[in-house]
Design a binder for these strands. Sequence first.
DNA 1: CTCCCTTACTACGTTCCGCGTAGCAACGCA
DNA 2: TGCGTTGCTACGCGGAACGTAGTAAGGGAG
Lengths: 104, 104
Amino acid sequence: MAGLGDLGRFSEPALHVLISLAAGPKHGYAMQDDIGELTGARPGPGTLYGAIRRLEEHAYIEALPEQDRRKPYRLTDAGRAALGAELRRMRSLAAAGLRRLAVA
Amino acid sequence: MAGLGDLGRFSEPALHVLISLAAGPKHGYAMQDDIGELTGARPGPGTLYGAIRRLEEHAYIEALPEQDRRKPYRLTDAGRAALGAELRRMRSLAAAGLRRLAVA
DNA sequence: CTCCCTTACTACGTTCCGCGTAGCAACGCA
DNA sequence: TGCGTTGCTACGCGGAACGTAGTAAGGGAG
């Protein structure tokens, strides 16, 4: 496997963080804004930094040198691969579901 | 809102149950098999029946008359609508993520 | 006819994620 | 110098996810 399922059960916030970082390195607060725009719901700090910590433990993201008070993160190669796999899985599941809805 | 987000944080098992029922009414054990084929991971009873109970509480699915020892369920109109909305949301999020991955 | 495997569900407990609240520090600006 | 924004840490509650175990009925093999 070695997909995002390694994060215990798979979490939406973790996916949002990865997608946000896919557009380039960012620190936490910027991710909150980005995710807010992307999904319509801005995650609170508890949600966001919890997801970040777990992603870092799994080496899907890594911290860059802290500057000012900001802690930027970027995707690792493993994170990029896991994100791609997860997104493709999602897309095909959504397609399969929509097909079933259309037929019935 | 009134999407699947009402189920506390949105849950993957709940989504799988809805997709499974989108292909027609089923009882729990049949859903386990169907979801196993669909996703590669067959949910245990704790996961499955927990998700079913919550979906029924939200009136996204409803029980049909029990026959033999089987408790079949089917999608309600609300469930069908919520599933469609969720799947379209998923598909567009996956597309946006993949776009970001491709560019970077 | 009796054992066992499969089907089908219920009950229960643990883990740990999601999420909100609160707090703190630095910066800008009026 | 006071206030809003930025940026993160700390903390705690509720509840979903998931496994394990238990129950019960049916069917096939021997």
